[in-house]
Design a protein around this nucleic acid. Structure first.
Length: 663
DNA sequence: TCAATCCGTATC
DNA sequence: ATACGGATTGAC
């Protein structure tokens, strides 16, 4: 195999294909597929990935030699290389860009030290069913027997899912978790079942706190040394070390934040994602892949099982269930009744019918009652308040209609008390606002008051300790006694024994945000907090400061995010929004955007929408196709980007497939 | 006729 | 990006 096929690390779309090099004799044995190399390319030295060794090249000209083998470490497995190509294709991006996301930067010192304290052979306890295919003498350890089944027995299809994993099959599931679920234990059991069946697993969570929980649950169930936790927060050395433990096959389970979605795992049997609606699962670097999509692609390519779980269900997860790609794991009515807290909206509270801002400033009596009752029972009370730093959205004082920009219908924001409101999309200032609904001229920030409410609550119960959990300091757990716990969405601590009451004051997001995910996102936040409450039978109550007639509030009352996601998906089908269709956005200065779209040979059925202003003198156009045209759309956009980069177009354009911040 | 320069295209 | 080849231009 004298020829090496190399992916050169250059960011140009028209160079997104392998180049062939000759392998110098001295690295003949070590320059193997998956290693990093340096090559001379167009006169300069660049980094590259050795993708493959082949007999001969189809290239007509003469081949150059590899300049240097950076390291014999094989950091790119065949499975991950194939995945990366598929992800690049899906997102109209370059393979090199995806590989930069998939393989952490090299840390030479770390590479030279042996990875885990215990090498794999000592770790290899006997596996009952290894399913090992010839020649591999590494054995995957049987998990330490855990108690119970991680809660899967609460769902009719749960035990079957676990059994299928243990049997080496590849079930695909969308799981709607019940309140009070120890999801980390459930994931750990699914992973352990996969390991017991002789295969490995990759699980991705949104943030460090969720990762801690899953890491701990796995350590308990699998014992030490069987898995690694991988996240960018570890820093370069420890991150690379965890990565190497996986790529060297010393662990067969990798859990982590989205940095782990490409982690190399031998004989992959399961990919899992928890809370796929969290924004953090969207990668902010080109080509902007989403962890859920990467993992599902991976399951498809590697014929692995897939688990998409959360308290709330996304439109995308609903799509998986509706198309039959995945099966649902949902509780039956009896389990639901036994586990859910009592949920009440305050919408029918007469104090609040007129003015939602006043409703948050003056806590409805229902919320007071719930808090008082919980504290009396020596149980903690969780108060979910909006995150600080959000621009307050504004609404009409008289009729609560959200204020929108007359020019582009974007949401208005107040930047200071006396300045007129400005649009958050196009930046135009609205001098004299008149409500299109009632003609009212007064505006009020819809958020102001919620934080104050939390403070008021603290004063109202003077002997009760108040804890806060937010951006600056996130608490993982709080003890069981009477206390007020004020938390921003995503930072809610788990309470020992569950909360007696949960008050959801963060409803302005739903009431004032215009984007298509607003309802889904509100429900996701509410369910995440409400899931920490005790069941109704144990006195658990949830009060949501919102109108009970709204669909997301209904879904919360019935603890049925599947129903809500079904409605959402139907709406998006109607409106032609993802995931019902495939959408791509093209952003840049107007000439560049027009230039790219003119060069793109879009599928016949493509619909081009826009432009909308995108700030900085840039604009954004959207291209929509049916899902059947998704691959063709991505190919057309990538090709067009290639034409532009080949002719050295000065003005850059950004192409995003399924952009996260749409609508 | 030849060198300097421009432009387009390939980069292994 | 940078290198190179072919075309073009301009001076002798």
């Amino acid at each position: 195999m004298p020829v090496a096929r190399v992916c050169v690390d250059v960011p140009l779309a028209h160079l997104d294909r392998p180049f062939d090099y000759l392998v110098p004799a001295e690295v003949e044995e070590t320059a193997l597929p998956g290693t990093r190399v340096r090559v001379r390319f167009a006169g300069q030295l660049v980094d590259g990935w050795l993708l493959d060794r082949v007999d001969s090249s189809g290239h007509d000209g003469k081949l150059a030699f590899l300049e240097r083998l950076v390291s014999p470490e094989r950091v790119l497995t065949a499975e991950v290389a194939r995945l990366a190509r598929a992800v690049a294709d899906r997102y109209a991006g370059n393979l090199a860009d995806v590989l930069r996301l998939a393989v952490p930067p090299r840390h030479a010192r770390t590479e030279q030290t042996p990875t885990p304290a215990t090498p794999s052979r000592d770790l290899a306890v006997v596996a009952s069913r290894t399913g090992a295919e010839g020649g591999d003498d590494r054995k995957i350890a049987e998990p330490v027997a855990g108690e119970g089944d991680g809660g899967w027995g609460d769902y009719p299809t749960g035990p079957g899912f676990l059994r299928a994993l243990a049997d080496g099959r590849s079930p695909r599931a969308v799981w709607s978790a019940l309140p009070g679920t120890d999801w980390a234990a459930a994931y750990a059991h699914a992973i352990a079942a996969t390991v017991a069946g002789g295969r490995g697993a990759v699980a991705v969570v949104a943030d460090a706190r969720d990762l801690d929980r899953l890491d701990t649950a796995l350590s308990t169930l699998l014992g030490p040394g069987r898995h690694v936790a991988l996240s960018a927060a570890l820093g370069p050395a420890r991150r690379y070390r965890a990565f190497l433990a996986a790529s060297r096959g010393q662990v067969s389970v990798v859990v982590g934040t989205r940095a782990a979605m490409f982690a190399p795992v031998d004989r992959l049997g399961l990919v899992a994602i928890w809370d796929d609606g969290d924004d953090l699962h969207a990668e902010p670097r080109a080509p902007y892949p989403h962890a859920r999509e990467v993992l599902l692609t991976r399951a498809q390519l590697a014929d692995a099982a897939a688990l998409v779980g959360g308290y709330a269900r996304t439109g995308e997860a609903q799509q998986l269930a509706e198309t039959g790609w995945a099966r649902q794991i949902v509780a039956d009515r009896a389990a639901l009744r036994a586990r859910t807290p009592q949920v009440r909206p305050t919408g029918d509270d007469p104090q609040l019918a007129r003015d939602p801002a006043a409703a948050t400033a003056r806590l409805p009596s229902l919320a007071w009652d719930a808090a008082r009752a919980a504290l009396k029972a020596d149980a903690p009370v969780l108060v979910q308040v909006p995150r600080r730093g959000y621009l307050p959205a504004v609404a009409c004082v008289d009729c609560r209609t959200p204020a929108r920009c007359a020019h582009c219908a974007g949401p208005l924001a107040l930047r200071s008390a006396n300045a007129p409101p400005a649009c958050r999309w196009c930046g135009r200032v609205t001098a004299a606002y008149a409500c299109p609904n009632c003609g009212g001229r007064r505006l009020r920030a819809a958020v102001v008051g919620a934080r104050r409410t939390a403070e008021e609550l603290g004063r109202a119960f003077p002997d009760t300790p108040v804890r806060t959990s937010g951006r600056d300091e996130v608490l993982a757990v709080v003890p069981g006694g009477a206390a007020l716990v004020v938390a921003t969405p995503g930072a809610e601590p788990v309470a020992d024994g569950g909360y007696g009451a949960v008050l959801l004051l963060d409803t302005w997001a739903l009431l004032t945000r215009s984007d298509l995910r607003a309802g889904e996102e509100a429900l996701r936040r509410w369910m995440a907090a409400a899931a920490l409450a005790r069941p109704a039978a144990a006195g658990g109550r949830v009060v949501v400061v919102a109108d009970g007639g709204l669909a997301p509030v209904q879904a919360l009352l019935r603890w049925d995010s599947g129903w809500f996601a079904g409605r959402e998906l139907a709406d998006r089908r109607e409106l032609g929004f993802p995931p019902a269709v495939r959408m791509a956005s093209v952003t840049g200065v107007p000439e560049a955007v027009a230039d790219l779209l003119a060069a793109a040979r879009l599928p016949d059925a493509a619909v081009v929408l826009g432009p909308v202003p995108a700030g900085d003198g840039q604009e954004r156009m959207l291209v929509r196709v049916a899902r059947s045209g998704a691959a063709a759309l991505a190919r057309a956009l990538h090709e067009a980007a290639g034409l532009r980069s080949a002719r050295k177009a000065a003005q850059p354009v950004r192409i995003q497939v399924d952009p996260h911040d749409l609508f």
